[in-house]
Design a protein around this nucleic acid. Structure first.
Lengths: 128, 128
DNA sequence: TTCAATAGTTCGCAACATATGAACTAACGA
DNA sequence: TCGTTAGTTCATATGTTGCGAACTATTGAA
């Protein structure tokens, strides 16, 4: 028992904006997506078990990958004992031009702002 | 009893990308936001009780406005017996340049694609 | 004042979603 | 066949959402 059905990848025409936004409204999933986008040949799931100094349980991680997959943001294919995950950003970019760059750019901006804020606070209070 | 506390509007510096995406991952809220963006002097809540040929219960509508407000996307102020809701898109645009246009543009694209698909289907099956 | 009308909010609960430990499947190599 | 590594599924506890009913707030009569 416990079926282990094949992975679902929507066609690019079935990808929805609300699906993308929902998937990328979660910081963990954004970090995963950004990591995949940065790596040239994709990454396994377990590459993200430790993320941003935080332990992610692997069942949780599996759910996050599923969310990204079913939103159409990534493609996952088995490669031996592990999974090769890659972004589908080219496809999505051709359907919704500029959406993903804008999203990721805003997250990047937010990260910069937060680092600046942390630095300000750090110099004010000497040592957290 | 039943407190009716004052409306919460985050400062623009406290607006988060994940908050915006979560708020705009809901088609009803997107329709509201788009409606507000289109109207010159803002709209009341009840202007959206009927939306896209669908009845929205007013308690539900109230929650949607709250979600948009607390994500920092709109500002609501009482004006007599009703509420004046306006977008905060200028503020957000200066913090996350291009994010909102990209989002709304993608939704617009999706709408166009759906209309095209419906037309195709309509001419194939004569009268769906 | 008191009453009614209009516009939103809050409450309570049912339905749905999410996070995670435990138990599982799947591929590989010894 | 067994062990190992990688990921999925299940059960469940906890969180979130949708909506009817009951409430608050403001205005405008009477």
């Amino acid at each position: 028992m416990a079926a282990m059905r094949p992975l679902v990848h929507p066609s690019v025409d079935d990808v929805t904006v609300e699906g993308i936004l929902h998937a990328l409204a979660d910081p963990v999933r954004v970090a995963i997506y950004a990591g995949l986008a940065a790596s040239e040949k994709g990454s396994s799931c377990s590459a993200f078990l430790q993320l941003d100094n935080r332990e992610i349980p692997k069942s949780t991680l599996s759910q996050h990958f599923r969310a990204l997959r079913e939103a159409g943001l990534i493609r996952s294919e088995r490669q031996g004992v592990e999974m090769r995950n890659t972004t589908r950003c080219a496809e999505i970019n051709s359907r919704f031009p500029g959406l993903l760059p804008a999203l990721m750019g805003a997250y990047q901006q937010q990260l910069i702002d937060r680092m600046k804020a942390a630095k300000r606070k750090g110099s004010k209070a000497k040592s957290g």
